[in-house]
Write a protein that binds this DNA or RNA. Structure first.
Lengths: 349, 349
DNA sequence: CCGATAAACAAAACCGCTTTTGATTTGATA
DNA sequence: TATCAAATCAAAAGCGGTTTTGTTTATCGG
């Protein structure tokens, strides 16, 4: 049912019908009521594509993430999407999600998607310190909010968890338990979250006067496989066997991990080396995933209310689209540590 | 840059430009070459929204899944999306994903999304035995392919893993190891995958003459939390303590789980009961997730090439959109068991 | 050389809505 | 009562394409 048919059935023009339904002033109350009644009666809905062409607005938002070919989306993205979808739905928007392939085609694919004009704005996940996707969005003037900050791009709207504080807290917890030689298995430092987590770690190490040389930082994928491999290397390199007595001076007694998945891998490596997680070597993860909760022993981790992050991403984007200046559109989300059994007092202490 | 401007710069009509660029016959080779050169030179792209209005096609496909409020998307969905996105990209389509809230708003939300005319077709995940979403899509004539079959809907295109065979194999493996009392912790039987997995389980039990009363089936969420709770109940109900000697006649020696997540929970429950996974009680999961691989002991599970499923979903949808009859558009994907250390010979045997 | 046919393009209709502009009616004011 | 403004609606012009129809010109067989 088109607006023309509706107008004809009422004996008035299409422009009056349109203006009546869209709340314009120069329509008499009586006519407006008549139009609204007729529209409701026949269930008239403006054709969305025609509406988009006329207004330039699509009524849809996309959450965009990049994934390496072969890998797939992480739980963080899924949770972010759930939160954003809920908030956007309340505003009458559609929430879509889009996956970009990392690598050389990434920007071209994003560009192609923007050219497709399917959405009015973008929520960008897995932000990097120097993020060409951000630069592209800015250049094209597309409203967007990132999840995670950038460090070398022009200012933009963002929502981020307080990564730095999270790892400051986690490191201080280990230090408070007597650990003095703590390793940190981090993600790639071009990801902002990784850079910030590393800052928090180093800050705690420095503030408490620990020997930085005894607190190595390693970078890798945020997967269990990578975590296991790196932890195995660390164990070999630092002879992390606490049972062999006073002769060992360099052994590491705790491993802090940038994600729960890394932590799961690290725990496997520790077991394989014949050590006990939580007693010989403490492990702390990040993300409060189900896998961590059901690991043996249950993983001490940091919780970050990621569904709420998604909701806030949507809120900020709505405000940006409504014309608010981006200066005020930033939000740092709180984190808190969830103590379980994968860490404990340093046995050396 | 509009087609009108391009036409004017060439001194020809817009219709000729359109016909030249869209491969129609009644354009001279010379004119076509001129138009194509000019279009490339200025980077002309038809405005996608106008194109959609004129043609009725959007060039986009959505992968749709329903999730319970508070929960979020599973890794299966993410992998499916990755595969589908890759295949669709090759065909020039955009791949989107959409999340519906389960419950009473589910159909209304799907309806609203379809009304939005953002996509030409739908890939539907987490199909149920009697799925109202399928009925809605059929009623509205939207091209779609489901991941997972239905059992009580009209015929439609689908891609599914061979759930029945997967659990037949897994059950027979346990039987072959001497287990005679095997529990099955399944998902809700209104999900088709759960119904089929249960069929496979029961078929094996029956074929090998096991006592069905000693092989209980339980239904729950496909999460670790639910798996742990149900396993704990099973342990209590069946006094699954194999150490207490000949007096025990009813104890269960193996737990088959509908997903790796359930299996992780079951393993936690087994440990909590003071038993050893893989020796006292065998556990098998499904899905070959990373968490299962890095569990202690590593989880025996079933692999299902889910990224390929996503690709095949896309293939079938393309064929359906191109007019192929849906009768031929079905595909059952192979599975195979990955043996690890969470299962072993029955200690009673 | 004439009429039918094909080739090549232009014109116009169409997709279905929004928004600007313009015209008519009504009411208030001087 | 003439004038001006406000209210109300219709007409027309977008938005930017595609597709149908129509017209002109060249080609070909008879």
């Amino acid at each position: 049912m088109s607006i023309a048919a509706l107008a004809e059935s009422l004996g008035i023009s299409t422009s009056t019908v349109s203006r009546a339904l869209n709340g314009y002033s120069d329509v008499s109350a009586k006519t407006r009521a008549r139009v609204e009644a007729a529209a409701k009666a026949i269930g008239y809905q403006p054709h969305p594509v025609a509406h988009r062409l006329a207004t330039g607005r699509t009524g849809a938002i996309a959450l965009v993430s990049s994934v390496r070919a072969g890998n797939f989306l992480d739980a963080t993205f899924a949770a972010l999407l759930s939160g954003a979808a809920e908030a956007l739905r309340e505003q009458g928007y559609f929430a879509l999600s889009v996956v970009l392939p990392t690598g050389e085609n990434e920007l071209a694919e994003l560009s192609r998607f923007l050219d497709g004009r399917l959405v009015d704005g973008i929520l960008l996940a897995r932000t990097r310190t120097n993020d060409p996707r951000v630069a592209l969005l800015q250049q094209r003037g597309v409203p967007f909010v990132t999840h995670g900050r950038t460090q070398f791009n022009e200012p933009h709207a963002w929502v981020d968890t307080d990564n730095e504080r999270a790892f400051l807290l986690a490191t201080e917890r280990l230090i408070g338990m007597g650990h003095r030689r703590i390793a940190f298995i981090n993600g790639h430092p071009n990801m902002t979250f990784a850079a910030l987590r590393e800052q928090g770690f180093r800050q705690a190490i420095h503030a408490h006067g620990l020997d930085a040389a005894a607190c190595p930082v390693r970078h890798g994928e945020v997967t269990a496989a990578s975590g296991e491999q790196i932890a195995t290397e660390l164990i070999a390199a630092y002879a992390m066997d606490t049972r062999s007595g006073a002769g060992n001076t360099g052994q590491i007694t705790a491993i802090l991990c940038a994600t729960d998945a890394i932590a799961l891998g690290a725990m496997a490596a520790i077991r394989r080396a014949g050590l006990t997680v939580g007693r010989d070597v403490s492990v702390i993860g990040y993300g409060n995933t189900e896998a961590g909760l059901y690991a043996e022993p249950p993983l001490t981790t940091i919780d970050h209310a990621i569904v709420d992050n998604g909701r806030h991403l949507a809120d900020l984007l709505m405000r940006e689209i409504n014309g608010e200046p981006i200066q005020g559109l930033t939000r740092l989300e709180p984190v808190h540590l969830i103590a379980r059994q994968s860490d404990g007092p340093c046995v050396e202490a």
